[in-house]
């Protein structure tokens, strides 16, 4: 699979950057001429992953979020969102719907929504070292409509 374009974005884990990160990633994905629906799916999945970095990985501490996005021939989009935060002790548990450690205002649906709006989701995490989430989306684009 031939990589045809990529971008890298490093941002501080501040909640104001949730909107920026999904808009920037959507602008990159838009180069593949996706449908509005596909673009919305990408924005939603990225928003969840970046929010997890801010709320869970770093919590009250400062840190950086590393976003790497690549477009491949045929319309495959891969977005890796990585932090160097606390890590997830039990990834399978964290991926369960409605599981949250963050209190009443968090739904516990972050990973469920990421899975629902992507074609493939991989999560790698090490306690004390951080987490990397890779979202894969096959953009069929407007040409397929």
């Amino acid at each position: 699979m031939q990589k045809i374009n990529f971008m890298k974005l490093t941002i501080p884990a501040k909640s104001v950057n949730e909107g920026f990160s999904r808009a920037a990633t959507a602008a990159f994905a838009a180069l593949a001429d996706p449908t509005v629906e596909e673009l919305s799916d990408v924005k939603t999945a990225v928003s969840e992953a970046v929010t997890n970095c801010i709320v869970h990985a770093y919590g009250e501490t400062d840190g950086l979020i590393y976003i790497d996005a690549a477009l491949y021939e045929g319309g495959t989009l891969k977005i890796r969102i990585k932090d160097r935060g606390c890590g997830i002790p039990d990834v399978a548990k964290a991926r369960e719907a409605l599981y949250t450690t963050a209190g009443d205002e968090r739904s516990g649906l972050g990973f469920t929504v990421m899975e629902s709006f992507s074609d493939k989701l991989s999560v790698r995490s090490a306690v004390g070292r951080g987490t990397a989430v890779t979202i894969t989306k096959f953009l069929k684009g407007k040409a397929a409509k």
Binding site: E48, D104, E105, R106, S107, L109, G110
Partner: peptide, 16 residues
Amino acid sequence: SFMDSSGVGLVMGRYK
């Protein structure tokens, strides 16, 4: 115009 799962948390919290 856009909502992620924070919208669910918003409804759940207001429900409580």
